[in-house]
């Protein structure tokens, strides 16, 4: 089996300050990897470097494209990278309003990626939008409502539908459950888990919520000050942490 994503020696500096440094790992098809660490540990910087939102100062992000096999997305041309991010990649933002067009209806939000890759049949686009609303548990009758009329949890689910409609293979998620209340979080996690398995998605999830990674992620990477201090199987890292920082992180979680 070949990796879907190979990250090699990624480094990003902000002047003299390290954003993230010397990060390498392979992600295989169907794997979900969590990246945890406190605010400022470099996890979001790393995610943005991998997703092409930031240009790393060093390193490679090699993605197994459908057409040409493994290609370094850092050096690929911008049109190619943008095409990738509309088709095979998806990015779920922490704040739904960063990932949605708030002035466009739910149907239009979901349909955008389809239209971007050339779909030109209104009826077919609308049918797929409605299908996806159902899959993220939003009523069909809301298809023409704007996301501004949705609750936070619904907005987040709509963002997920909008991202997954083109059947991507790799999803980047930046704190996907942040800012949602606990019951809404649970529903979203359940939904994400189902979609990940159903569609065979690979995903990279940045979060500071250890409960989220325990439920969603197969593997875990722990970051501190821009470096990966520990990586491994999620439950092993959480139940038998080896590094001092991970031990601190795990022991800091309040038990309910």
């Amino acid at each position: 089996m070949t990796p879907l994503l190979q990250v090699k020696g990624i480094e990003k500096r902000y002047g003299a300050r390290i954003g993230c440094s010397d990060v390498s790992f392979d992600l295989f098809p169907g794997e979900v990897m969590g990246i945890v660490g406190e605010s400022g540990s470099g996890k979001s910087t790393l995610l943005n470097c991998m997703a092409g939102h930031l240009e790393p100062d060093a390193g490679q992000v090699i993605f197994g494209t459908r057409a040409d096999g493994p290609v370094d997305t850092v050096t690929m041309s911008e049109p190619e990278r943008r095409m990738l991010s509309r088709t095979d990649w998806a990015f779920v933002h922490q704040h739904a309003r960063d990932g949605l067009r708030m002035s466009v209806s739910a149907g239009g939000n979901i349909g955008e990626r389809l239209m971007a890759v050339g779909d030109r049949h209104y009826g077919a686009i609308r049918d797929r939008a409605i299908d996806w609303l159902g899959r993220v548990e939003i009523e069909e009758s809301r298809v023409d409502d704007r996301p501004s009329a949705f609750s936070g949890g619904m907005q987040q689910r709509l963002q997920i539908a909008r991202n997954l409609v083109t059947g991507p293979r790799l999803v980047f998620m930046d704190e996907p459950t942040g800012g949602l209340d606990v019951s809404v979080q649970a529903r979203l996690l359940d939904l994400l888990r189902g979609l990940v398995r159903e569609m065979g998605l690979s995903a990279i999830i940045v979060t500071h919520d250890l409960a989220v990674v325990r439920l969603l992620a197969d593997r875990l990477m722990v970051m501190k000050s821009g470096h990966v201090v520990e990586a491994g199987l999620t439950d092993q890292v959480l139940d038998d942490p080896q590094h001092a920082y991970t031990q601190l992180l795990v022991s800091s979680v309040l038990q309910v």
Binding site: V104, G107, E112, L114, A116, I125, R126
Partner: peptide, 16 residues
Amino acid sequence: LEEYGLMHVKLYEDIS
């Protein structure tokens, strides 16, 4: 980059 999907989003909104 000739990324014009958004134009059709506007027309989609019209029809919907």
